[in-house]
Design a protein around this nucleic acid. Structure first.
Length: 1022
RNA sequence: GGGCGUUUAGCUCAGUUGGUUAGAGCAAUUCGUUUACACCGAAUAGGUCGCUAGUUCGAAUCUAGCAACGCCCACCA
């Protein structure tokens, strides 16, 4: 690197070089055996679906700021990197690409072949992502890079699945699920997006099987209201509220379902909304009082059926599924009475898409004069977050994790929350206070650390999201009908096929492998709990052909092979992506092995992420961290803003308003990008970044934002300040040879420097990132460059040596303070500074060879000098006013002016000692002092501040001077009037804090004195 | 429907427990290439802090109501 820096900072010239220097020196490598308290951050693993966007740049910059800060504070740091396989998202992307490029569908491939294709995509994108992170300057320990589907993580997934199964927390459930007909997979509740849709309420008449005459009323038909007419094909009952006056006559009657001709009963259910056209409740206004019950296609109806069948088992309501997984009407997926109801009208509809069928059904009712009305209706409809098609409630077999089931014999101690009033016992179960969440359930394990304060959110309002979600949590469906993911380790088959296994040695082997007394698990549907070997033996006595399920611990591949040889079949589905993501904080460290890394770095410290995955991911990490590793995965959760474009829209590919971090690194440099992002990180939930087109040198037109110019300008300013400093500080005296408090400007800048250290440190610790950036920006630019360096320049030219040492020290500290935000440029400058001035500041030793490992500065409270700051403030005010006079009077910058000063006591002394500052900074030739008794000099402009009066001599523009002074007088009068008003108010004087009143009085005095000076000068002008 | 957030200069945003004349960056105006930096320097201009009411000696800040915009959550009759 050249001894003298280039005139303009060229990021490209230093970034690669600096980064490879860090890698060579293994600056990011975590050593569990090394000294130092641990500090660990795990990266939110980016999805391998695509390259990183600006949100990732923000997210990872903040993590890097934190980890670099703590590394400099000499913590034993680990930033764990890696990527996420992102099941649905990645599979969808790859499927789309293969379809577009080769015209092939997933089902045209064998499973292994398709997975290989996705794997190839993953390999490519993982490489790109890691390369992007490196270009951003991220200081991850790359040797530890993990992938949610690699061997180490897969082992943790298998172990966790086994434990959950063994603890009876995984079960097979027939449930109505959120079915995405496009991707043909089930979605968790939180993967469903609700969108407002303009739809219709259709009023359909169903004829009664027999006319009813009762209580003076005559009924031939009833009318139901529905937004999804096509589901009527699966209606198996009509429900009405028992309080409905018509109920007495109609409940128990039968209805003949149009089109299908099925006879279905009218039943009573209290949840049916009574019709009321006047009601505030929209449902009551639209209701007819009769609710069609379609248990296979509506969760409400499913619940009605369960209630009814529990209460009335002798006459159960059927459940009939009329949809195929692809969303077409089908008689092949659980249309149980097809043979008895089939007729040309129904057969005509079978095979239609659900929306086509909707029209066909409505048309049938219209033709048969059974369509009573169609009313427009705006309502919320669930859509797939992935395919964006409306979700279909669909009856399906899925694996679930029971989240509120108490875990008996939980393997880790559970902290006693009752003593602290955070838990209470009801019916022999301990629940978290004011919830139905048992302390020893998975949800309880996640919620307790928030309640007892072990996990803290910043900003804290996000804790509410986390809490409400867990309090209302329902069981977690974990199976996904995909190929890309962790295949579910469950083998199933008719129960009699298990007998050889139960009596074989393999069971013992499994027990051994599980490192636990928990045996192989066999569970049988119909039993809520899974049971062990004994249950399996019992289960042999159950009906032949009953399906049993079995899982084995990790590391028993030979057993898995034998299971398959004996005709047991492995579940084709894979686990929900979040299942492996939930284990990320410890699976990456080698859990369940008790590795050195796990022992040293778990629990970690901070999780830094966006608010959208607080529930999906953050809560599950806490849950599984507690369940698997026996402790919380991190103590702080920092939630940063989401970046939007200038109009407040999300940045997205489809809108074309996204900004590619690599383009910004190309055009502005990684440091500039980082600085801008950090300075935008306030505590709000969104930040806007106006997007503008930008032309790159290679001719490409890309999105950028003027916001990044601020970061680039800042880096350039720092670069030049450092360049200038290093031209001047060679041969700086040792700190012990100077008197850093003797000169006002030295005392002032050192005071400001130490205040800045304290402020920056406190701000990072509190995650107030924008405050860190603002503090450093202000100190570096407005104080160090604009004032101190200008002064030092002149003093050094005048032969003074002290400023050299002070400049070197300030630059040294500034580089340290800025390193976490702008690591490349600071490291590059550091290398030069070490050449020019290896020993600097109060320490006598040579500076650390690498800034990345240098010590974070400590504020020296003794250097903080209120007096120097006040005095310097006054000098700044006077200098600004002299400059203002020069501008107002059109004094050419090259012309030096003379000033005559009227001042007394302390101010006079201050101005006498620091007259040089006026000369250096306001282009003043001579400074003289005069008495107030002398007549005011002619052709002079007057400057009034802090009780002093300065005449700038021989600047002749009476009109300009009058205007200037009049304006100043007005400002002063306004201030005086304000204060006088306050002081005239007895209540203010009586009630306000005495120091506030005293301050006002003092200020009034000052303003009045200044006003008197100004008025005197004005009078003299006339 | 429930919850949360935002509203301050033309634009993007700060403003920590209520207390000087409400700040910054960008943009704007005027001047300037004096050997660190024109990705710069100096100076200037620009705001009844969304609206209304209240608490207080004092409100951008606290309370209530209203409005606009946005986000999250909620079983589509």
């Amino acid at each position: 690197m050249p001894a003298e820096l280039a005139k303009i900072f060229e990021p490209k010239a230093v970034e690669t070089d600096v980064y490879s220097r860090w890698i060579k020196q293994r600056a990011f490598a975590a050593d569990p055996a090394a000294a130092g308290e641990s500090y660990c951050i795990v990266i939110p693993p980016p999805n391998v679906t695509a390259a990183l966007h600006l949100g990732h740049a923000l997210n990872n910059t903040l993590q890097d700021v934190l980890i670099r800060f703590r590394r400099m504070q000499q913590y034993n740091t680990l930033w764990m990197p890696g990527t996420d396989h992102a099941g649905i998202a990645t599979q969808t992307v790859v499927e789309k690409r293969i379809l577009a490029e080769e015209g092939k569908r997933r089902t045209d491939f064998a499973r292994e072949d398709f997975i290989a294709r996705v794997q190839a995509w993953k390999d490519e994108y993982e490489k790109r992502i890691i390369n992007q992170l490196e270009l951003m300057g991220c200081s991850c320990d790359w040797d530890r890079t993990r992938f949610t589907m690699d061997e180490v993580c897969a082992r943790a997934v298998r172990e966790t699945f086994f434990r959950l199964f063994a603890d009876g927390l995984i079960y097979r459930g027939k449930r109505l699920v959120n079915w995405d007909v496009a991707t043909q997979t089930v979605l968790a509740d939180d993967e469903v997006e609700h969108e407002t849709v303009q739809g219709n309420f259709y009023y359909l008449k169903y004829p009664l099987a027999h006319e009813v005459v009762a209580h003076g009323m005559r009924f031939e038909a009833i009318t139901v209201a529905t937004t999804r007419p096509e589901t009527m094909l699966g209606d198996t009952a009509i429900a009405m509220n028992p309080r409905d006056p018509r109920a007495a006559a109609l409940v128990g009657q039968m209805v003949r379902l149009p089109i299908v001709g099925r006879l279905i009963p009218i039943i009573a259910d209290e949840h049916v909304v009574l019709p009321n056209p006047e009601s505030e409740d929209e449902k009551a206004r639209f209701s007819t009082g009769f609710l069609k019950v379609t248990p296979a296609h509506d969760p409400d109806d499913y619940a009605i059926r369960e209630r009814r069948n529990a209460a009335c088992p002798e006459a159960p309501i059927d459940i009939i599924n009329v949809l195929a997984p692809d969303g077409t009407i089908s008689d092949k997926h659980g249309w149980t009475d097809w043979d008895t109801v089939k007729n040309p009208d129904v057969e005509n509809i079978v095979g239609m898409d659900r929306f086509e069928a909707r029209e066909a059904v409505v048309e049938f009712f219209r033709r048969e004069k059974l369509l009573e009305d169609v009313r427009p209706y705006t309502h919320e409809v669930g859509h797939s977050y992935r395919s964006h098609v409306p979700i279909e409630p669909y009856l399906s077999d899925q694996w679930y994790v029971a989240v509120k089931k108490p875990i008996s014999n939980f393997r880790f101690p559970i902290s006693n929350l009752s003593d602290r009033g955070l838990a209470e016992e009801r019916d022999r179960v301990t629940y978290l206070k004011d919830t139905d969440v048992p302390v020893n359930s998975l949800a309880g394990l996640a919620l307790a650390p928030l309640m007892d304060g072990r996990v803290k959110f910043t900003p804290d309002r996000y804790a509410t999201n986390y809490r409400t979600w867990l309090e209302n949590l329902r069981d977690w469906p974990i199976s996904r009908q995909l190929w890309w993911g962790h295949q579910i380790p469950v083998w199933s088959g008719a129960i009699e096929k298990f007998s050889w296994f139960v009596s074989s040695q393999l069971i013992e082997e499994c027990r051994h492998a599980s490192d636990d007394s928990a045996p192989v698990i066999v569970s049988v549907p119909g039993r809520s709990a899974h049971e062990g070997v004994n249950a399996a033996l019992q289960a042999r006595n159950t009906v032949e052909g009953t399906i049993g399920y079995l899982t084995v611990p990790p590391g028993c591949e030979h057993i898995e092979k034998q299971l398959e040889e004996h005709g047991l079949v492995r579940d084709a589905d894979v686990l929900d992506t979040w299942f492996s993501s939930a284990l990320w904080p410890f699976s990456t460290l080698g859990w369940p092995e008790q590795t050195d890394a796990l022992k040293k770095y778990y629990p970690g410290d901070v999780l830094c992420t966006a608010r959208e995955i607080i529930t999906l991911w953050v809560s599950r990490m806490v849950m599984m961290g507690q369940y698997c590793a026996g402790d919380i995965p991190f103590s702080d959760v920092f939630i940063h803003a989401m970046i939007q474009d200038g109009e407040g829209r999300k940045m997205s590919k489809s809108l074309g308003n996204g900004i590619d971090p690599l383009d910004i690194i190309d055009s502005h440099g990684a440091d500039a990008m980082r600085f801008t992002l950090v300075s935008m990180t306030t505590q709000t939930q969104d930040v806007r970044m106006p997007v503008q087109k930008m032309k790159l040198p290679d001719g490409r037109e890309v999105n950028s934002s003027p916001k990044f110019d601020a970061g680039r300008n800042f880096c350039n300013k720092l670069w030049n300040a450092a360049r200038f400093a290093m031209m001047n500080i060679a041969g700086a005296p040792a700190w012990s040879q100077i008197r850093p408090g003797a000169d006002l400007s030295d005392a002032w800048i050192l005071s400001r420097l130490n205040a800045t250290i304290a402020q920056a440190t406190a701000s990072i610790e509190a995650f107030r990132f924008n405050e860190v950036a603002d503090t450093l920006y202000h100190f570096m630019w407005d104080e160090f460059c604009d004032w101190y360096l200008e002064i030092a320049k002149n003093r050094i030219n005048a032969g003074q040596q002290d400023p050299k040492a002070v400049v070197a020290h300030c630059l040294d500290v500034l580089l340290r303070l800025m390193h976490p935000i702008i690591p490349f440029i600071t490291e590059a400058i550091w290398q030069n500074l070490n050449d020019v001035c290896p020993v600097r500041g109060p320490g006598a030793a040579e500076a650390e060879p690498l800034l990345v490992r240098a010590q974070w500065p400590m504020a020296d409270s003794a250097a903080i000098n209120e007096n120097a700051q006040q005095n310097f403030d006054l000098l700044q005010e006077i200098i600004r006013q002299v400059r203002n006079v020069r501008t107002q009077h059109n004094v050419p910058p090259s012309r030096r002016v003379d000033v005559a000063i009227e001042a007394d006591g302390h101010v006079k002394e201050l101005l006498t000692q620091n007259a040089d500052l006026l000369r250096f900074l306001a282009q003043v030739q001579t400074v003289t002092f005069r008495s107030g008794d002398e007549p005011a000099p002619a052709n002079a402009a007057a400057v009034v501040a802090g009780g002093a009066k300065l005449y700038v001599l021989d600047v002749v523009d009476a009109a300009a001077e009058t205007a200037r002074l009049t304006k100043q007088a007005q400002t002063l009068e306004k201030g005086i009037a304000g204060i006088m008003g306050k002081l005239a108010n007895e209540k203010f004087v009586a009630n306000a804090r005495p120091d506030v009143v005293a301050k006002e009085r003092q200020r009034l005095e000052q303003l009045q004195a200044d006003l008197a000076h100004v008025q005197a000068s004005l009078a003299a002008l006339k």
